[in-house]
Design a protein around this nucleic acid. Structure first.
Lengths: 353, 353
DNA sequence: ACGGTGAGTGCAATCGTTTGCATTCCGGCG
DNA sequence: CGCCGGAATGCAAACGATTGCACTCACCGT
């Protein structure tokens, strides 16, 4: 026995149109028939066919999330929150993980077009397939990284200010030689963080010598290597503090420091970008610049749903939103050890015990 | 200008049927017309309308993944791999995160039914909505936890053997008093791990006193509390090794041990369940029972796609597959400390507070 | 009494594809 | 020469919902 709208109509003794309207809550049906239809629908467990509806109305209530991976804590949080927010509004999340491969990204976007997606959230992406998506009137929101060509609004962290706040904290603790580990210059977020770092140093009339800047891909290895490179510098040029501008690197940098028994924060202060469980649980707790992925995700969901509801492919220019970062001060930053202070500490510890 | 099959047909000078067949690769069209149609389709950027196709054929090529969260490393890996495998076969992943809430799970499953999902992967779930899904002929594969009522094949880790291998390793290192932290008894995986623990001890003619068994929800707090409970035991009854049977607890347990300056493995040996980056990076590296989520995911995707392809809601009984675990020996297990060698400062500090 | 009104309902077209069946066209065979 | 068969194509009916339009009444005002 089928359980489509026709069946509901049949059993309710009304036409398909009326049944449809009753279920849709139209004012064009009498209260009594609505009750009857609803009751029958409930009884036979009627579920509307999403394909048919999408075909007829042109709206699928599917939203694509195109993302490079789920390992990155920010991305994971974003996926969770966006899914949840969309679900509350009756949308479904179609997940595509591209691994950063443009070809896969293209494929994902094409599929989303075929699905008549109601919207697309893309994080860290940049391909001309977006133009097609946009051309089809599907709203797009960019997230996390700013692509060269915006086809929709863009939600970013305030990377520059975040880096500045971190560097300022270090400066306030007396650090002058601050090493930085950042992502490849091709990624906007990495560039901006580096820029913030430079700017803060400049404002304090400090130098940022090239030897203190290490750039590399988003891998733990980059972090490991950075430690070795920076600590190999002669004492006087060695950094007393490190700013780790992406947390993939942190996953290599922190263990490497421990391997080498370099003590945080007494020997080197550390500030990392992006909060993650491991940052809280590391010993000592790592001071981080939290880019608040949950807030980014909420805003993204909000923007996208407004666009979807508006139906209007707003011809206005895409706007870029910046979510402020939050400096979470834990235990990995301390005053720069002065020669005398260090000597004193050693002496007193001897004397004390 | 529309972008549908009719347009392709029109420009190719053939009927819609022929165009459809040409694109579908049917043998019923001449090579020449196929070429022509393909060329036109490519030129005008034709993309088939998935809704229309789904409506007509009854297959949506959408697969639901219903999961409690993405924080758990195993789940995250599963989501990534399943997505990738499905995408390769031309399916799309619809992600639903339930947070463990049965109501949300029900809603997710209902939505998937409306979408005419081609299949559903459910991890850690148990609700009667599955019966409806099954009744609609949608293949289901369970993953990770075994629900009371199987509506489809089930892929699990070999929890019992995994726990046994861990305990055996500890026994081989001379440990006799082995504490265990496990999930709530309501979850099958937790029960099985506990069972494996008991069995291994029994086989070695050791006891597993109740005071060494701590059960609690899948939270970091459970792990923290477990440390305090177990270490508060009088010296002679205190465990010399810990088996942490879920990694949510590990996230609380490991930092707590470090807070208390309880040294691993010299004061206490530790084996955790489920591998994760933090296990590798912890210092010392934590020996784990790896449940190989990637292999589970691959098998799940494989099973599901076979069922989808088969079209047959195989009436045969659901079969339960077990993926073997892998003991990854790192640095957190050492021979049991002799009484004299055993440090006392850290542990007694706890008793004091 | 009659036309107007408006609430409630039904008819039928429509969304874009797939596919069973009919149709055409051609060559080959009896 | 007519007939048959197969290859290639087209026609039209689905799939299940939404929705503009037309229709039916009962009721009201004049």
């Amino acid at each position: 026995m089928p359980n489509d709208l026709r069946e509901v109509a049949l059993q309710s003794g009304v036409s398909i149109s009326t049944a449809s309207r009753a279920l849709a809550g139209s004012t064009l049906v009498s209260e009594r028939t609505r009750q009857r239809v609803l009751e029958i629908a409930g009884r036979i467990g009627y579920r509307p066919n999403a394909s048919a509806r999408a075909l007829r109305t042109g709206g699928s209530r599917l939203v694509g999330l195109v993302i490079t991976n789920l390992v990155n804590t920010s991305f994971r949080v974003i996926a969770e929150i966006v899914q949840q927010q969309l679900a509350e509004a009756g949308h479904q999340l179609v997940l595509s993980i591209t691994g950063g491969d443009p070809e896969q990204e293209r494929a994902a976007l094409h599929t989303l077009m075929e699905l008549n997606a109601s919207g697309v959230v893309a994080v860290g992406s940049d391909s001309k397939a977006f133009a097609e998506v946009r051309a089809r009137g599907i709203p797009v929101v960019h997230l996390g990284r700013r692509p060269a060509k915006l086809v929709g609004d863009c939600v970013l962290g305030d990377e520059r200010a975040g880096a500045e706040s971190a560097v300022n904290l270090l400066l306030a603790n007396g650090h002058r030689r601050i090493g930085v580990v950042c992502g490849p210059p091709s990624v906007t977020s990495g560039r901006e963080r580096l820029d913030g770092y430079r700017r803060a140093l400049l404002a304090a009339r400090c130098t940022a010598p090239a030897e203190l800047v290490v750039a590399g891909p988003f891998t733990a290895q980059t972090g490991r290597d950075a430690v070795d490179t920076l600590l190999a510098l002669p004492r006087a040029r060695r950094p007393t503090a490190l700013l780790v501008a992406n947390h993939e690197s942190a996953y290599g940098l922190l263990p490497r420091l421990r391997e080498l028994s370099v003590s945080i924060p007494s020997e080197v202060s550390v500030v990392c970008f992006e909060d993650a469980p491991i940052m809280r649980w590391w010993s000592p707790g790592i001071t981080v610049v939290d880019n608040q992925p949950a807030r980014m995700a909420e805003l993204v969901a909000d923007l996208l749903m407004k666009k979807i509801a508006g139906e209007t492919i707003s011809t206005s220019r895409p706007v870029v939103h910046r979510i402020p970062t939050r400096l979470v001060d834990r235990e990995s930053v301390a005053a720069v050890p002065t020669r005398t202070a260090r000597g004193r500490a050693a002496v007193s510890s001897l004397a004390g015990s």
